[in-house]
């Protein structure tokens, strides 16, 4: 494995399977009464969050703590960032404090990539702008594998705001590495320009794709990133691309429904679908801790890979 996890494309098939297999073993830890391993004792993980986040930050914090690492949480609010400190100066501060890993979420695509050139420790991308969110893709793949077995040849449909979604891009890259066939479904206005070069199919018609899907993953409509009118009304979006009871009935019996959260209930997913047994939304959160433990263990648990500051 590489020293950093910045893009799902950094992972070879063997790397990805190693992470998922490791997570499979670590999943048992959360069923034990002592949910802690001594493996990363004495190592420091910094959570550097420039954007709001509930589950990802808590999940990384829980993962690091279960491996006995020391965790330092940093959020842009209430830090020197609000006084105008640059990312580089923040990075140098962390470097001086001796962080072994930096988990970063940033509103700008590419921020983790820049950070990796300034710090000695491992950089883990916890979401950068509209670019990537590789640990989300890993936990999604892990959840699918637990429900469905091997992902080879599985048909996975990702629906919604692909344009603003880092989850979609990371999932397409990772799932195609793992041998799944991914189809993206969205209104034409919510596809990025470069989508033709992604290793997946695209479609504008959700109802045509549903009967052939093993997994349907709904994406959140990211109103906060929308600076133009991408669809006429919420109601029209919900009618054509929302997952309601009737659409779920058209899916194969074994197919599962996923959502990376946070959900807009009633917009991209109906409340009764989100709460149904076919939905893995709560499982995804639990699996997030396990998968991130596997990532932190594989990046930090072994010998120092000898990173040099560039």
């Amino acid at each position: 494995m590489k020293r950093h996890l910045i893009s799902a494309a950094d992972l070879s098939r063997d790397d990805a399977l190693l992470i998922l297999d490791t997570a499979d073993e670590l999943a048992k830890i959360s069923e034990r009464s002592i949910k802690k391993l001594p493996t990363l004792r004495g190592r420091t993980v910094v959570n550097l969050f420039f954007e709001d986040s509930t589950r990802t930050r808590i999940s990384f914090e829980a993962a690091a703590k279960r491996l006995s690492a020391d965790v330092i949480n940093f959020s842009a609010k209430g830090s020197s960032v609000s006084k105008g400190e640059s990312l580089k100066d923040t990075a140098l501060t962390l470097e001086a404090m001796g962080a072994d890993a930096v988990v970063i979420r940033h509103g700008a695509s590419g921020a983790p990539h820049r950070l990796a050139t300034w710090v000695r420790g491992s950089v883990v991308n916890a979401g950068d702008g509209t670019h990537e969110h590789p640990t989300q893709a890993l936990l999604d793949a892990f959840t699918m594998r637990r429900r469905l077995g091997s992902l080879d040849g599985r048909k996975i449909t990702i629906v919604g705001d692909v344009l603003h979604s880092r989850v979609a891009r990371s999932n397409v890259l990772l799932l195609s590495t793992l041998g799944a066939e991914v189809t993206l479904v969205a209104p034409p206005t919510l596809f990025p320009v470069s989508v033709d070069s992604w290793p997946c199919q695209i479609s504008y018609d959700l109802d045509a794709v549903l009967p052939k899907s093993d997994v349907v993953m709904m994406l959140r409509v990211q109103r906060e990133r929308m600076n133009a009118a991408f669809f006429p009304t919420e109601r029209e979006y919900s009618r054509r691309y929302g997952l309601d009871r009737d659409r779920v009935a058209r899916m194969p019996d074994e197919a599962i429904v996923m959502h990376p959260g946070p959900m807009n209930r009633g917009m991209e997913i109906a409340a009764e679908v989100a709460d149904s047994p076919r939905s893995t939304i709560v499982e995804q959160v639990a699996n997030g801790v396990t998968t991130r433990m596997a990532v932190l263990y594989l990046l930090l648990g072994g010998a120092d890979l000898g990173g040099e500051i560039q």
Binding site: M1, L18, D21, T22, E25, L26, T39, Y297, L298, L299, L300, G301, G302, A303, D304, L305
Partner: peptide
């Protein structure tokens, strides 16, 4: 553990 790259779990 720190003497070798991280290894797969049994």
């Amino acid at each position: 553990l720190r003497l070798r790259p991280a290894r797969a779990l049994g």
